[in-house]
Design a protein around this nucleic acid. Structure first.
Length: 311
RNA sequence: CGCGGGGUAGAGCAGUCCGGUUAGCUCGUCGGGCUCAUAACCCGGAGGUCGUGAGGUUCAAAUCCCACCCCCGCAA
């Protein structure tokens, strides 16, 4: 079975790797253009490109998926199917119609819930205890295609975006391989999504990362875990400097929302902050201009005092 | 040349602007004490080429000047 793979970030790269390990032939990897990233705006290739190049797979980075030249290139390659994982752009109908067996997509949620850009983060942020992966026959809408297979994954209390993402990365490849096997034999089901149960996981914007201490400690805990280790939830010190929170846990306590109730610089030290309900025991932070450090170390530097109010 | 912060003991920091006796603090660590016990408390100790430069200025440089290396945050 001849495939073309389309994807961009780490999760996509892990899936591509899984397909190759599963014995599938990938004719080309289509991914987004290199973007200026990091300090000094260094042009950085997306994860899928790096992996593809390392595995000797041709990399295509079209700027326009509707461009006749690109479509011609796809037709010439004549893939049996196109596998898409977090490519980052809507595929035009002309492209969806190219492959003999169609385009299949792997999405990081149990559809029809959490369609869209940030399913993993949003599920955790909303306090879900379960999510998963779903493969589907791609349709024109955003993650609306008929479903083929899915795999459930528990969201554990200690999970954050990073740990859940990594677990999904491990499951993605095998799930795609099973899906393709069914597609090849014409036994892939077409489970229509229940539109009434659909929900969307919007892209994470900067504002979405701000912590609102008026919310409950458990909600804030979920919020923090869904955004860790990147892009990270943040709040501000009284002087206006940003303080990102990498890890925290709900605990007892009450006070004005945002008020620092207690500080500890011993061993598993922490910064206890009052929330709307309960309090949050902050364990690990990233101060503005600094790298990540344990809360105990932050406290030791005498950078924070009890009674001050974070916002 | 996108913006900015920083490199001082194992960790997090102060000291640098206004150069000057033994480079300081919190924690850790080692030893001892107290205690039924302890991550608590008390006493004592070890541990630092102050990023690099047989560089510059100076009577004197962690502190001023120059060059270089490295780390990090933002933004994208």
């Amino acid at each position: 079975m001849k495939l073309i793979f389309m994807g961009t970030p780490d999760l996509a790269a892990a899936c591509l790797s899984g397909l190759l390990d599963g014995g599938y032939t990938v004719t080309a990897a289509v991914t987004q253009a290199d973007r200026p990233r990091g300090r000094g705006y260094a042009l950085t290739p997306p994860p899928v490109k790096e992996l593809a190049m390392a595995r000797g797979i041709p990399v295509w980075q079209p700027t326009d998926l509707r461009a006749p030249e690109f479509l011609a290139q796809i037709r010439e390659a004549a893939p049996d199917a196109i596998v898409v994982v977090a490519y980052g752009r809507i595929l035009p109908p002309a492209l969806l119609d190219c492959p003999r067996l169609g385009c299949i997509n792997l999405h990081a949620s149990l559809l029809p819930r959490y369609r869209g850009a940030a399913p993993i983060q949003r599920a955790i942020m909303n306090g879900e205890t379960e999510t998963g992966l779903t493969t589907m026959h791609m349709a024109e809408g955003l993650d609306t295609g008929d479903m083929i297979l899915s795999e459930r994954l528990a969201i554990r209390p200690e999970d954050n975006f990073g740990t859940l993402h990594d677990r999904m990365a491990v499951c993605g490849g095998p799930l795609l391989c099973r899906t393709l096997a069914m597609l090849a034999t014409g036994t892939a089901p077409r489970l229509v999504q229940d539109e009434a149960k659909a929900s969307y996981a919007a892209k994470i914007r900067k504002e979405d990362c701000a912590l609102d201490f008026r919310r409950s400690a458990s909600e804030l805990d979920c919020h923090i875990r869904g955004l860790s280790p990147a892009p990270l939830a943040f709040c501000h010190r009284p002087d206006g400097r940003m303080l990102k929170i990498l890890r925290a846990e709900p605990t007892e306590g009450s006070g004005k929302p945002g008020e620092v109730l207690a500080l500890s610089d011993r061993r598993e030290g922490s910064i206890t902050v009052a929330c709307g309900t309960g309090a949050l025991r902050i364990r690990e932070v990233v101060p503005e201009g600094k790298g990540r450090m344990r809360a105990a170390d932050y406290v030791r530097g005498r950078q924070i005092r009890e009674k001050e109010v974070l916002y």
